[in-house]
Design a binder for these strands. Structure first.
Lengths: 233, 233
DNA sequence: TCAATAAGTGAATGGCGTTCAAAAAGAAAA
DNA sequence: TTTTCTTTTTGAACGCCATTCACTTATTGA
């Protein structure tokens, strides 16, 4: 029965078409300013048909996030493999990862982002159960790949899985924040340099830190000593 | 004419009351799930009256962001003054700044965040001109205070204003991203440690970097060498 | 050719942000 | 106090838009 398979394919294709139409409009007009009538027009279908492919407008949003996360995961895997094959330095690989991250974040990241709020309760967007599950699974996969990379690279201080996971979260946070800053400030016009150079700088800073090493307290023992009460040496 | 002043005061008070009512509801139910009827009920007024105090629902949102930014700016100033007075190490001061940042971000930051999207065109929220102007002015003030701190502290590698500004943006990005990660992952339950320890770790990592120093390429000269094409030494 | 099922349509529904005409309250004047 | 004018407050009415649904059209297998 090749008919069923063809229909399956056509259905998937249509769903992708709608999603792309929506993404274009969200990008240019904004999520809230885009009506489903707009999406229907752009995709050259009727409004009602959208609901045969997506559960709601928000579900389209979540689907875009998922698409982005899958894209990033593939890029990440490719970057890591390539890095291992070419025996690149960890810093070089990290730079490429950061680029993938920025690539992922520019078209899709906003959606991914919104979902964090949803998870938290700000609920800009309500997520459909199945889409959320998939999204989390893909994301955890990416985090795990990163963790393995950190553990296996001799260049990092992280020795075990736990330490590596901390580093991964830190990395993720840094990339997330830096992208937001860079992109939020007019895609970098606040900075005197291009995206590539900015990423280099960030990775460099991550690797090296921002302080003159002599001044850093390397241990985090005696935590309270770090706060207000501590005088200079 | 004490009457006019009293009315002035009452008006401001009322506006603050409405804003707080809105914040409580946004926090518990989410922005989109909160109706103006809800806000009106919570503030014990009628729907229409809201519009005498705010231009729109989105304007309330922006006002919350502004309130948060002002709070952070004050905290920052206090932290810097205190640090200077007590001659704390830069790392200690930075830790306190990070705490202020986290404090600021938990109740108000989400709103602040949304505005970045607005600026970009995702337009979850349209900002009223005057509120935006104020918000930008407050934020730039905070950034400038941070820059001065970086320049004047001998512990940092940044030598001049430009380098310091880069560090400031990097810091801002790191804090932003790390907060999102921490808060997004169920306020830290993914991590084995508390908010305080997490912040310490982040600041520590910022100061030190994450690599064994021997492995870091300290210069960013010959940029292209950083990418895929570069073999290990 | 003919059911039977699936795909597709667009007008109807209901919720909600926003507006507005009118009422209520308050201040000033008489 | 009474009257007039201004400000505050109200909630019903309006319009937009996501979602639904009764209905039409196309496709499939017999």
């Amino acid at each position: 029965m090749g008919v069923k398979e063809r229909k399956e394919r056509e259905k998937l294709q249509r769903s992708q078409d709608i999603l792309e139409a929506a993404r274009r409009l969200f990008e240019s007009k904004g999520f809230l300013n885009t009506t489903l009538q707009d999406v229907a027009n752009e995709a050259e279908i009727s409004v009602g048909l959208i609901y045969r492919y997506f559960q709601s407008k928000e579900d389209m949003f979540a689907s875009l996030a998922l698409k982005g996360a899958e894209q990033f995961d593939q890029d990440l895997e490719a970057t890591l493999k390539k890095g291992a094959r070419k025996k690149n330095t960890a810093q070089a690989v990290l730079t490429n990862i950061a680029k993938s991250f920025f690539d992922f974040y520019s078209p899709y990241g906003e959606y991914f982002d919104m979902l964090l709020y949803s998870y938290k309760g700000l609920k800009q967007v309500q997520i459909q159960g199945s889409t959320l599950t998939k999204l989390m699974s893909v994301t955890l996969g990416s985090l795990d790949k990163l963790k393995t990379f950190i553990v296996e690279s001799p260049e990092f201080r992280a020795e075990n899985d736990d330490e590596a996971l901390q580093v991964v979260f830190l990395l993720w946070g840094i990339l997330l924040g830096c992208h937001k800053i860079f992109d939020g400030s007019g895609r970098g016009h606040l900075f005197a340099f291009s995206r590539e150079v900015f990423i280099d700088q960030v990775v460099q800073q991550i690797m090296v830190g921002i302080a003159k090493s002599a001044h850093v307290s390397q241990t985090s023992e005696n935590k309270s000593a770090l706060y207000d009460e501590r005088p200079t040496l």
